[in-house]
Design a protein around this nucleic acid. Sequence first.
RNA 1: GUGCCUAUAGCUUAAUGGUAAAGCUCCGCUCUGUGGCAGCGGCAAUACGGGUUCAAUUCCCGUUAGGCACCCCA
Length: 437
Amino acid sequence: MPSKEKPKAKEVERMFRAPKGMHDVLPVEQPYWERVESVMKDAARLYNFHRIDPPILELADLFRRTVGEGTDVIEKEMYTLKTKGGDVFALRPEFTASISRAYLEHNLSRAGQPQKLHHFGPVFRHDRPQLGRFRQFTQTGFDIVGGVNDAIYDAQIILMCLNVLESLKMKNAVLKINSIGCKVCRPIYKKQLQTYYKNHEKSLCTDCTIRLKTNPLRLLDCKNPECVKLREKMPNFLDKLCLTCSKHFKEVLEYLDELQIAYVLDNQLVRGLDYYNRTVFEVFVEGAGNEVGAILAGGRYDYLMESIGGHLTPSIGASFGVERLIAVMKAQEIIIQPRTMKRVFLVHAGDSAKKKAFKLMRDLMAAGIPVSEALAKESLKAQLKSADKEGLSLALILGQKEIYEASVIIRDMRTGLQENVKLERVIDEIKKRWATK
RNA sequence: GUGCCUAUAGCUUAAUGGUAAAGCUCCGCUCUGUGGCAGCGGCAAUACGGGUUCAAUUCCCGUUAGGCACCCCA
């Protein structure tokens, strides 16, 4: 009764699937990933940034202390787990805290300042998946940690990120930038904001009445029409920055101007993570691909190191969401060139030839020649069909006759022309043909 | 966490209260020493559970999964 076996297979299929919001990156997707990674690597090399790979797991407190107790990323979205010893770890929801922790732990300040660091890897946030939003996603970006608190670094990070978008051939990128001040001026502005809103509390939405108490800066990005309207007359942070912050921000903008980098001042841009100060920025694309939201976000986080037991350390960084980048590339129909087809397809004809073909395969690979095959298929036809499907230009055919002559047929799949070549000359012949193309 | 929408083969789609159809893909054969074309054949689906009904893939309810919006965010 074969019918008994079938439902079983079905059950198995249904029992396991990738966790919600987490995705398999299948072979067809890999070219996009390879492109993003290589563009990031090139940028890192050009600007002298070095890669750092912190662990995926950290003590949950690291993120609580840095990202912020009151933030959604911590409160609602962190994956935590308890070890047998009782430590509470978290899957990292972002890189910044880990990078700072590593800097502190390994005294990277002694390795030269500032440290220019590059990261690429998965992060985890337990929110409800939707377009451009996943529970496991990939961030990649750059950080400059330590050294002098100089606006030129803010500009440098922005420049690099925009260069990356250019290298990816991305169109219509819009840089939004703002300053959210420092320990000195932010509390003052918050007060002013609260006073302003208290006078209009009746017209605020319910969320915003809470925000007014807990996190007044968030009042700035509420979408409720009533709240939006209220913003017209509210005090503008940029007018209220302290002297040092306003000088810093001015310098950032001057550096951007110097390179003719376009930006949009957006005084409603506040970031959801507590550690940011002064410069914050985001990049969106206009038109196709816009639906995924910000593809890049970053800012200065000078106080972060203090919150984990270090000294005040000037720091700035930015991260791309790789899945979002790729979504935009697809939406903008950015074509990724296929891998070069410098690969030979090895074909056997007959059982003993199969063994010799296997041996030849080893020798080809040892000589650095990439090989593809369908040696498990018996008919010559079927094998050549596979070769055709892969779109390779050269096939090697090995049969009884060739073994007897210690030769092999080189077939040009495009023209159909074949040549019989001595076995010991095969590798040179292949290389010769590739060299002349 | 709240709300809305969806669920047929690997993919794209069709149909019906009464045998579930096709295109693409995949595998094989025609063609045991030669691919692309063609012809033929094969694998393969109504997410799961319950209800209404003589009969449910179709109607209803629940579950699960996916999508989308809000919150928030890369």
